[in-house]
Each structure stands twice: as structure tokens, then as C-alpha cells.
Write a protein that binds this DNA or RNA. Structure first.
Length: 816
RNA sequence: GCCGGGAUGGCGGAACUGGUAGACGCGCCGGAUUCAAAAUCCGGUUUCCGAAAGGAAGUGGGGGUUCGAUUCCCCCUCCCGGCACCA
């Protein structure tokens, strides 16, 4: 009786072997082709969840596959350890955020090890450690000196009851999640990084990134939102300062019938001084959260200010409105409104009985009724005086020229992208290295005083940051003049840590500089894998930081991630697994029941990596069943003793057939994993081959040799996905050297050759027969064979053959 | 609201460049084994008509291009991700 499959024993043995010989620890070797395989590092939230298991397994399969291709593979792991959940846990359980975080990291590291991932644990990075975040503090001070960071007022969600700033996530239906108070938009001074200085480069380089999904590049392009337009100024009656607006459609300028400013705009404030209704309206506008989705979906409201702007071309007066959909943080906080040719302006004008003027007519000469429907396409100018008859594009230039000549505006390039606000009014983050001095203003902390260490043993109440109650932290001397000064108590956005960790894995132990020569060897990341929810922010900030580091002379690399794979979520009952929904499945439990390999196999088999994966308990059992069949097939074969060497020239037909299947499968799986990242079909192909092996009943010496080759191939090809069972089965097949050091199998082209192929015959596009034809038959022969088929005759006889299409090797379509 | 993605048997999915729709797995049905059950093994399984051979329909809905469309184009519905302080 053979040994049954016992995952716990098999997996322990494999993991001990990898640990003993330090299989995954790598150092720089310029003679070898490197492959840097990285997963978006996890937030240490407590325990591993299925989403983690999925993304880490995908990455591990790629890393192990590349290693078998002979690459020198680095796969590190670390912790995105700052963030709000630690503060929440601290409030709920009275544990300091640091203590909670370190405990979670220890738990999750243990779970990762049990899953057998090929990580170089000597490079582990934890972002809440001063030895990590000191370098982003250092880079911030460098950026300060270059003018790449600056301070300005910016909007936050203010909870008037708890007297705290809330994250967008903490605002539920416009109310604070704990206080239930209506949230207000409030402006406070915050630090910004000038990502817009890199907008052009971040945009144009996307064209040279074939390794990224088109969808992600499109999202980034749209997010950066480069537009070419015209900036023009309107005089305001009774005001010295003109009102400047930006438009991409200066051709519609003659159709302006009103203008709108943001609630926070000085002109709105002026009008509110002697009009309490306007003051109330402005108050109402700021009683909302700051999320763009909220502002874009709420009812469009506005109020006339009783102030007029002067149309810069006609001199006519147009009324000025304050509107809740105009944002102070976008552009100038003011827009010109052309209701005839802009959807939102049209609806607003209809609602408030503002005149709608048609100034663009369709280019094809059709007439339209502008009071019935808005017309947003480009066309030909009408009702526009001297510009009548020009096309929209001609008018764009004519009007832009006019403003440039009069000095009242001109062509500008505008970006939707805004500078990155990095200040957070929270405790559990990296301190922003700034000291405020009454005389010297904001002074960056000098390099020799870094890091600014976050005190870890704190009393955490949840109302405001504890740093504000710690004079020992914030009472400092001004680094420039030595007078008493105050340290910044805001911390960095946690996206700052995740914007450069990938580079730090190359040299996590360097205490003298942010990066060193080792980073030049390992970066850029060859394969980056993570959730599609990071398609814009994290990936764009990382691309920005990489360039800042480049311009600081730390690296020559501009793009941090050469190839990107965005994996889908893990769902159960059609919804994302989450504690709140109570539909989570604990990976630990499943590993205990079936072993890590079964969980890994199911994750890779159940869905393509980019798509959402629907959890299925039955599916996991199916994966377990497959591994048992796999185990038994190899063990039973091995139990029959050693095999003779394979002689490919002396095989009978069924032996040739199995050998052909083996090499077809090698070609298929190599392509699926290596080129397509299509792991689910790779597993399916391996299952098919194993089914063929199990049906192959031939105990002759040649038969056993063919079977041996087939089983070895399956073991090698499944090893990136289920490395533990394959490690054991490789030994079972008689090998002394461990599987982890084996190369990927090669396809033998000679084994793929066939004499006859099956072709499909269609009549008028409908499948009518299958015919067997010689592989080298020409089109005429194929056509004759197809028409000779009895069932084909039934549909062709008595009709005229109009056309015959032969797709070589595939099908014949007879059109009658 | 805006940007990106998705929809295929009872279920997860396959069909890669416009060329056999439903690979592989789950579930279910039937059989073998068993005192019995579990486990395992063998066979079947899109729907409808038919004993079968075979035929008809069929990839979210509507239209179009093509000898041929799950695949390309237009319109629509629903679902998911992101929207700058969740990570």
C-alpha cells in the first residue's frame, strides 16, 4: 500500500528544506539576469484574509516560474504599517497603536510562512520603524529645499462635535461616524508635494509602458487630465480684481449667460456681507463632506449674487452666481457658464430660468432647438458676431489670439491632477519633519536631527492626535535661530510610505542613505502585482516618488514597475469578503484542513487573476481531490520501480499520443504562465494531462518511460503553484537534487508532429461535419474531402456553391 | 455625476489574432465497490424536438458589419472598482 497524501507532513518537509538551504535569500550578482517580483505589501490588519492569499500566490507563482527560467529572482515582503485601523483598535481596546501593529505583523508573518511563499525574509521592511521612515523625512526636506513641497490651505472634513478631522471613509451620509454630527468642509493649512511639476512626464511616459494594462494607463491619463484651453479674465462691476476662468471651449464664449463661483470664493463672501440669504446658502454649501463623488452627485444648487461680470468681448453684463458644484480647489474657483453647449450649465440654466443662447450650430447644417436639448459637439459658430461662420477649432484660435493680443488671457495647458496633500491630523503616521518658528517660519528639520521619531507609548483617546498633548515632542528649538519653536504635529499620508518601499527592499539595512548601489541592481520591479483599486493613487504616487528619487541622484530609473498585474477581489455570495458583511473565510482554517497547496491551487484555478474570484467551499474540495489523484498517480508509478530511458523513435501509436499530449501541454502551460498570466487555464491543462496519464494503461518499458516523462512534466509545471507536493513527488520520481533548483521543461517539437488533422466543415456558417485530412493537404484537396462528406452533401446538393472559404488547419465554409 | 472594468450551462470559468461555444473543475444524475456510509473509480450532463441519426435555438437587451461575431461598431440595462483623508 502506498503512502497517502498527507499535506501537513509534505509541506513541513519542503519548507524546512527551503529554510535550511536559504533557497530564497538573494544577493546582487551582475552575471545573472535579475527578476524583481513584488506584491503590494499588506497593511497588518490582524490576520491574513483570502484577498492576501490570492495576490501573494499569484506573485509567488510568477517568482517561482521565473526562477525555473534561470532568472535571479528577488521576492521580498514587508508591512505597510501606519494607518487608521491601528488608531481605531487603540480606541476600542486601549492598546497603543504600535503594540497592536507589531503583534499583527508577527501573526501575519507566521501565516505567510505557513503558505510557503518564496520570500527573502532577510529584507523585510516595516514602515512604522524610524529606520524606514527617516528616509522619507529626509527626502521631504530635500524636496523642501527644491521647492517641491509647499504649504497652503486645503479642505478637510470637520466633525464639529468631536472637534476632529475625519477621513472621507469616516463620513457616513454627510455625518461623522462616531458623533453623527453633520460634517463641515473646513480649510486648514497643509503640506503639499508638487506632483503637478511631473504631470507631463507622468502622462507621456505611459505611452512607453507596454507592460501595464491599457485600462490602468487610461485611468491614469484621465486622472492627470491634460487639456489645452484658454484662460480669460472677466471684469467684475465694482471690483478692481478681474475674475479669471479657464475653458477648453473658448469657441462658445459668446454663449456665456452667467458665471459661477465657489462658496469659498471672496466674491461670494462679499455678497454675503449684506445678504443673509446668501450667507445662509454659503453655510449650507460647506455643510457637506469633501469627497468629489458627493459633490458631483448632489443636487446642483446656486444663488444669484447680485454682482455682474462684464463680458470681455461684448461688454454685456452677465450675472454672477454662487454654486455648490464649483470647487475652490479646482482651478480658480470660478467658471464661465455656457448653457447652450454644456450639459451641467444647461440643466442649471433651465432650473433657474437663465437665458440659453445658441452659439454653435451642427457642422452638417442640421437645425437644433437649444431650449429642447443641449448641443455639446463642436460645430460652426452662430450668433457670435465677427466670429460667425468659423468652425469651433478656428474660433478657438481666433479668440485665443484676441485675448493674447489684449493681454487679458491666452492659451494654457491645464491639468485635472492636483498637488498631493500629505498632511494628516493623525497620530499613527510618520512625523512631518518641520519646525515652526515665529521668526524663521517653517524650517525643515536638519539632516543630522533625523529621524523625527514618533513616540510609541502614548495614551490614545481618539479625539485629536496625542502628539498635540506632548510638549516633550513638540517643544523644540528652532534649528535656524535657536529660539523656542514648535514642531509640526501632523503626520504623513500613509501613501508616502508605500510610494518608495519597493526601492528600499534592495537595501533595507542601509543606515547611511535612502538607497545605494544595490537598488541600481534590483530596480525597477520587473513584475508588480496588486489590487486594481490601486490603479490610480498608489501607482501614480509611486511613479512620482521614483522620479523625485531619480532627480535626487539616488537612481537612474524613472518608472518603478515594468510589468503590472492587477488582480481582482475575492468574493463570497457575490460580495467582497469583509468582517462587516460577515462573509469571510479564514485561510488558516482551510490550511489546517487541506494544506497550503490546496488553498494555493484553488486560488489559481478558480478564476483568471484579473477577475473577481467567487469563493466556493466545494471548489476547494475539488482542488484537494485533484492533489490526491496527482499524488496517487506519481506514487503508484514510482512504486513499480525504475524506468528505462525513453527512446522517442520506438513508440507505438498510443505512446506517441501521450507523448504528444505531454509536449503540447508543456507548450500550453509555458505560454499560459510565461506570457499570458493565465494561471487558471494552466491548471486546467495540467489536469487534462493527468487525466490522460491515468487513462494510459501500458506497463511496457516504453510505456512506463513515456508515462514517467509525462508525470515529471506535470510535477515541474505545477511546482510554482503547489510547490510542496511537487517537492515531495520529485523525490518520489527518483531524483536526488531538489525540485527548487530544476529548470522549466522544454517542448520537443518532434513530439508534436501529426499525420492527420481534423477539420470542421460548415455550410453557410453552420457546422455540418468534421473531416479527417492529411496535415499537409492543400486547399483543393481539403475542399474535395469536405464536399464528399455525406452530411455536407445533404445541405449542398441541388444548390449553387457560391464561394468556399478554407481556413488552413481549421475549417471549410461552403456558401450556397 | 465622471473615469475604468464586467455580464457565457444549475455554479466557477474556457474559447489567446473574427473561424468547432461550453475546455477544466464544481454540482447533479446513473453505475461499480461496501453490511452500510464516507472515500474512491467508471459513465452521462446547455436547452428544446427526436429511440437514434440528426435538427433547431443559444454567450445581459436592441441594432449593425461579415461567408462566419462570445470576439468588431452603435445604443441601452444591470453589477463591480476608483474619485484625491480607507489601504
Amino acid at each position: 500500500m502506498s503512502t497517502p497524501y498527507q499535506p501537513e507532513i509534505v509541506e513541513k518537509a519542503a519548507q524546512e528544506h527551503w529554510a535550511d538551504v536559504r533557497s530564497f535569500e538573494v544577493s546582487e550578482d551582475p552575471d545573472k539576469e535579475k527578476f524583481y517580483c513584488l506584491t503590494m505589501f499588506p497593511y497588518p490588519s490582524g490576520k491574513l484574509h483570502m484577498g492576501h492569499v490570492r495576490v501573494f500566490t499569484i506573485s509567488d507563482v510568477i517568482a517561482r516560474y521565473q526562477r525555473m527560467q534561470g532568472k535571479h529572482v528577488l521576492q521580498p515582503m514587508g508591512w505597510d504599517a501606519f494607518g487608521m485601523p491601528a488608531e481605531n483598535a487603540a480606541i476600542q481596546r486601549g492598546i497603543p497603536p504600535a503594540q497592536w501593529t507589531y503583534k499583527n505583523i508577527d501573526d501575519m508573518r507566521g501565516q505567510l510562512k505557513r503558505l510557503g511563499y518564496a520570500y527573502d525574509w532577510t529584507r523585510e521592511v516595516t514602515t512604522c520603524r524610524p529606520e524606514y521612515y527617516r528616509w522619507e523625512q529626509w527626502l521631504f526636506t530635500r524636496m523642501f529645499k527644491k521647492g517641491l513641497v509647499y504649504r497652503k490651505n486645503a479642505v478637510v472634513n470637520w466633525d464639529p462635535v468631536d472637534q476632529t478631522v475625519l477621513a472621507n471613509e469616516q463620513v457616513i451620509d454627510g455625518r461623522g461616524w462616531r458623533s453623527d454630527a453633520l460634517v463641515e468642509r473646513r480649510e486648514i493649512p497643509q503640506w503639499f508635494m508638487k506632483i503637478t511639476a511631473y504631470a507631463d512626464e507622468l502622462l507621456s511616459e505611459l505611452d512607453a509602458m507596454p507592460g501595464w494594462p491599457e485600462s490602468v494607463k487610461t485611468m491614469q491619463r484621465n486622472w492627470i487630465g491634460r487639456s489645452e484651453g484658454v484662460e480669460l479674465s472677466f471684469d467684475v462691476a465694482g471690483e478692481g480684481e478681474p475674475l479669471t476662468v479657464y475653458t477648453t471651449r473658448p469657441d462658445t464664449l459668446m454663449g456665456v449667460t452667467y458665471m459661477a463661483v465657489a462658496a469659498e470664493h471672496p466674491l461670494a463672501a462679499r455678497a454675503a456681507r449684506d445678504n443673509p440669504r446668501i450667507a445662509d446658502f454659503i453655510k449650507e454649501c460647506t455643510t457637506t463632506d469633501a469627497a468629489e463623488a458627493t459633490l458631483e452627485t448632489m443636487e446642483k444648487k446656486g444663488m444669484a449674487l447680485g454682482i455682474s461680470a462684464i463680458h470681455p468681448l461684448t461688454g454685456e453684463e452677465v450675472p454672477l452666481w454662487v454654486a455648490n458644484f464649483v470647487l475652490m480647489s479646482y482651478g480658480t474657483g470660478a467658471v464661465m457658464a455656457v448653457p447652450g453647449h454644456d450639459e451641467r450649465d444647461w440643466e442649471f440654466a433651465r432650473k433657474h430660468a437663465i437665458p440659453i443662447k445658441q452659439v454653435i450650430a451642427p457642422a452638417d447644417g442640421t437645425t437644433i432647438d437649444i431650449d429642447e436639448a443641449v448641443f455639446t459637439d463642436k460645430g460652426v459658430l452662430v450668433n457670435s458676431g465677427e466670429f460667425d461662420g468659423l468652425s469651433s477649432d478656428e474660433a478657438f484660435n481666433a479668440i485665443a489670439d484676441r485675448f493674447e493680443q489684449t493681454g487679458r488671457g491666452g492659451r494654457t495647458v491645464n491639468y485635472r491632477l492636483r498637488d498631493w496633500g500629505v498632511s494628516r491630523q493623525r497620530y499613527w503616521g510618520a512625523p512631518i519633519p518641520i519646525i515652526y518658528c515665529d521668526d524663521c517660519d517653517a524650517v525643515p528639520v536638519p539632516e543630522d536631527q533625523l529621524p523625527v521619531v514618533l513616540p510609541e507609548n502614548v495614551e490614545f483617546t481618539g479625539v485629536g492626535s496625542p502628539l498635540r498633548d506632548m510638549p516633550a515632542f513638540f517643544e523644540v528649538a528652532c534649528p535656524r535661530c535657536g529660539k523656542p519653536a514648535r514642531r509640526e504635529t501632523d503626520t504623513f499620508d500613509t501613501f508616502v510610505e508605500s510610494s518608495w518601499y519597493f526601492a528600499r527592499y534592495a537595501c533595507p539595512d542601509n543606515s547611511d542613505s535612502m538607497l545605494d548601489e544595490r537598488a541600481r541592481y534590483w530596480t525597477p520591479v520587473d513584475q508588480y502585482t496588486g489590487g486594481v483599486e490601486h490603479a490610480i493613487l498608489h501607482l501614480l504616487y509611486s511613479r512620482f516618488f521614483q522620479r523625485v528619487m531619480r532627480d535626487e541622484g539616488l537612481t537612474d530609473v524613472s518608472e518603478p514597475f515594468t510589468n503590472l498585474l492587477t488582480q481582482g477581489m475575492v468574493l463570497k455570495d457575490g460580495a467582497k469578503m469583509s468582517k462587516a458583511k460577515g462573509n469571510t473565510v479564514d485561510p488558516q482554517e482551510l490550511i489546517g484542513k487541506y494544506g497550503a497547496d490546496t488553498v494555493r491551487l484553488f486560488m489559481m484555478f478558480a478564476a483568471p487573476p484579473e477577475q473577481a474570484l467567487e469563493w466556493s467551499d466545494d471548489g476547494v474540495q475539488g482542488s484537494y481531490r485533484f492533489l490526491k489523484r496527482f499524488w496517487n498517480a506519481v506514487v503508484e508509478h514510482a512504486d513499480r520501480g525504475p524506468v528505462q530511458p525513453l527512446d522517442p523513435d520506438r513508440l507505438d501509436e498510443s505512446q506517441q499520443e501521450l507523448r504528444r499530449k505531454t509536449h503540447l501541454t508543456i507548450a500550453k502551460i509555458s505560454d499560459d504562465i510565461g506570457r499570458r498570466s493565465s494561471f487558471n487555464t494552466a491548471v486546467a491543462a495540467a489536469m487534462e494531462l493527468l487525466n490522460a496519464i491515468n487513462k494510459f494503461d501500458d506497463d511496457s518499458a516504453a510505456g512506463r518511460a513515456v508515462k514517467h516523462e509525462a508525470l515529471e512534466s506535470v510535477v515541474l509545471m505545477l511546482s510554482p503553484i503547489v510547490p510542496h507536493i511537487c517537492h515531495a513527488l520529485w523525490h518520489e520520481l527518483g531524483h536526488r537534487t531538489p525540485l527548487i533548483d530544476q529548470r522549466w521543461p522544454d517542448t520537443d517539437a518532434a513530439a508534436l508532429a501529426v499525420d492527420m488533422i481534423e477539420m470542421v466543415v460548415q455550410v453557410n456558417g453552420k457546422l455540418r461535419a468534421r473531416v479527417s485530412v492529411p496535415a499537409d493537404a492543400d486547399n483543393d484537396t481539403v475542399q474535395q474531402l469536405a464536399i464528399a462528406d455525406d452530411n455536407v452533401k445533404r445541405f449542398v446538393d441541388g444548390k449553387d456553391i457560391r464561394k468556399v472559404i478554407v481556413v488552413p488547419g481549421r475549417l471549410v465554409n461552403i456558401v450556397v
